[in-house]
Nucleic acid binder design. Structure first.
Lengths: 154, 154
DNA sequence: CGCGTAAATTTCAAGCCTAAAGTTTTAGGC
DNA sequence: GCCTAAAACTTTAGGCTTGAAATTTACGCG
């Protein structure tokens, strides 16, 4: 019986590669659209939005390191983004009682207001981009992608 | 009858948002691992690898603008990356006969050799990261994600 | 107490990335 | 043959991102 590409031992490996490239492409497309809309509609950026969204979920604020671990980005990165948010008046740093190394970041009132406006539109944009996916398909997608886990470093 | 979150009109919208966040998280995880391995094992980066991979598929080379449209990144971006690849001796620019505006980029022999080594490992890394997905699941993932399309700008 | 180590963050250098503006060359219309 | 518009790139300014080094503070242990 003939051995097709599909059932060949490394056909699966190639297919995993294709899957990864698809994931990557979907991300690029969606990010690019969201970035455009944030820039045009709110004079803002995706990284700033991501940080605002994280802070919005924690009214008491978060430590710098908590923000970076939530977003899976580096520490130094968050420093810069928060700096810009502070200079825009959207977030503020407060020192942590009892640990003078740490900083807690939280939204200002202006930040909450601004984020609320952005978030509503953001949800609508994503809704439109993924409009032709129904609930079942979304479930499938979510449960499959949830199985992509962080791997321990050797 | 009670209206649950799932069938509520905006439950679907929230679910699309969750799906997008999952896609994003999966991408970040995979990119982060691949970046690490490329840096440690080949002293290179993901963007460079992406460009090399694109060039590798076209023995005669590609125009700058073709590279950027393949990778869905901006024109100016490619200029910089190719510049570094050229300075590393992995790619070269040749002028296009009959159009003095255009440039064709292609791999050098060193570039081909270097890429071949990277590509084999890269495929193995991705294979390992997505190891617990079988062919059916990968098919599902690929076909779902393929439906995320570029949307016309207003 | 004093010392070494770990933790929280910032700083730094290098690279990636985009949008917008600028350069050079080509192509089409009159 | 010009003139204008478009095309192919590059340049630039600003921001994002990382990994590594530096700083400051906390903590455990002898």
């Amino acid at each position: 019986m003939m051995r097709t590409e599909q059932d060949a031992g490394d056909g699966l490996s190639k297919q995993r590669l294709r899957a990864w490239l698809r994931i990557l492409r979907a991300t690029r497309l969606i990010e690019s659209e969201l970035r455009d809309k944030l820039r045009v509609g709110h004079d803002s950026t995706l990284p700033r939005f991501d940080v605002l969204a994280t802070l919005a979920r924690y009214p008491d604020g978060l430590r710098m390191s908590e923000v970076s671990s939530h977003l899976k980005v580096s520490n130094g990165n968050v420093t810069g983004i928060v700096e810009r948010l502070v200079s825009e008046g959207l977030s503020e740093r407060v020192s942590v009682e009892g640990d003078r190394r740490a900083m807690r970041v939280r939204l200002t009132e202006a930040g909450k207001t601004r984020f609320a406006a952005m978030a509503a539109e953001h949800e609508a944009w994503v809704d439109a981009i993924l409009a032709d996916f129904d609930a079942d398909e979304l479930d499938t997608l979510i449960s499959l992608l949830s199985r992509v886990k962080e791997r321990a470093k050797p």
